[in-house]
Computed example of a mutant assay.
Amino acid sequence: MAAILFLILFSGIPVSATYAGDNPLKNVFSSDITGGYCYTTGNSAYSGTLAPGDSWTAKMPVTLPDDAAPLYSRLFIYWAWSKDGQKAAYPCIIPALENASLSADPFSRYTDTKGFVSRNDFFSGMDAFTISGLTGGENAVTLTVTNTHPENATLVIQGAGILSVYEAETGTAGSIWVNEGCDMLFSSYGVTPEMATGTIIFPGETVTEEVSRATLHLVAPSAGYTSANTPEKNVIMVNRPAENSLPLFFERILTMLFPGYNGWEWTDGFSSDEVHQVGEDLRDISPYLRSRDNTVTVRDNGDYLLLTNGILWIEKEAD
């Protein structure tokens, strides 16, 4: 298993590269279930520079209902500044789990860079692995990641996450979508906030009249923390049109008469800090749902972030 992972991780992978929103997150899983989901970053924290041979460890407890049967479980490793000296280099890392197992399924690597020739133009990204072995109750998972690069490439790990979508008789009837990717967003060096806007589409139909609650869960390493403390440094938009031709006065009237008709937006989402660098945003978006292809956009306004995960969990009204 380790040898297979090594070969895949060391192989070259095409990378789109700009600070603009040019890597829309891909839908990798969706299902109608009776159950729920769990996402945790455990105590994972910024690693500092990892040289070849160095390891990084985090405790990642996953707590599921006692009667839970995991349906879709993923391990995410968020990494950045992968380089050999001043040259960008793809990382070669091998994860190991205690109290859970890596699946033999191929892993997914998502990467991005700032996209112009300059110093410090290094790869950042997310590696996603299918895992198994989680059960109902408390799963005391420990993750160890080792830099196995054969030359001298270093990287930093910003953190890690485990997602488990499960079925359970004691759970809630609903629908869930899971999207993955890596879109580096930064409105700087000539990239405007409108350009530095990432997109997540949750494809398919939703019977909005049957919805009791719709939870949007976003994950974005680096989001929410900046030493400049820029106000309104990011924007999260749900089902907002690309352009609005209505005067602001009329839009406000329509919003009062028909809440949610034009989606909504929030500023300064995500929570992270210098140590715990995996930013998360969790909110109820029920009033703003559309009946088809719900769309979320995340805009940078001086924050700098990697948009990597989007989860939409729609709970249905009880019969």
Rank of each mutant, 00 (worst) to 15 (best):
E251G: 08
L257H: 06
V211T: 01
Y46E: 09
S124V: 11
D284M: 02
W177T: 08
N234R: 05
V275Y: 10
A68V: 02
V219G: 13
P106L: 07
Y37W: 01
R290N: 06
D84Y: 13
S101V: 15
L155A: 07
T41M: 09
L75W: 01
Y90R: 07
R240I: 15
L246R: 07
E151T: 09
T34D: 13
P221A: 03
P287A: 05
R252D: 06
S286G: 12
G198P: 04
T297R: 10
M184Q: 10
V15I: 11
I176Q: 00
Q86G: 15
S222R: 08
D112K: 10
A160Q: 00
P231H: 02
E274N: 14
E317A: 12
P14E: 10
F202A: 14
E205T: 08
L64M: 01
L71E: 11
V145S: 00
G174P: 03
M60H: 01
T40W: 00
F10S: 09
A160Y: 05
R252Y: 07
E205K: 05
I311P: 04
R252S: 08
T197N: 12
L102S: 02
G133T: 11
T41N: 04
A100W: 00
L163G: 11
S245P: 08
G136A: 01
T230S: 12
R292N: 15
L71S: 08
L155K: 03
P91N: 03
W313C: 04
M184V: 10
D67G: 02
S108M: 07
D66N: 14
D183G: 09
S73D: 00
P91H: 03
F202N: 03
V207Y: 07
G115I: 06
E169C: 08
L306C: 09
R283Y: 08
L218F: 06
V15H: 09
I236V: 14
A242E: 15
F122P: 00
N294P: 08
G12P: 09
E232A: 06
S188C: 10
T148N: 13
M195N: 03
N301L: 14
S11V: 01
A45T: 09
N244I: 15
E98W: 13
G269N: 07
M126E: 09
D319N: 09
R109K: 14
S175W: 02
L5G: 08
D105M: 12
Y78N: 13
T230L: 06
G53H: 01
N179Q: 11
G269Y: 02
G171Y: 00
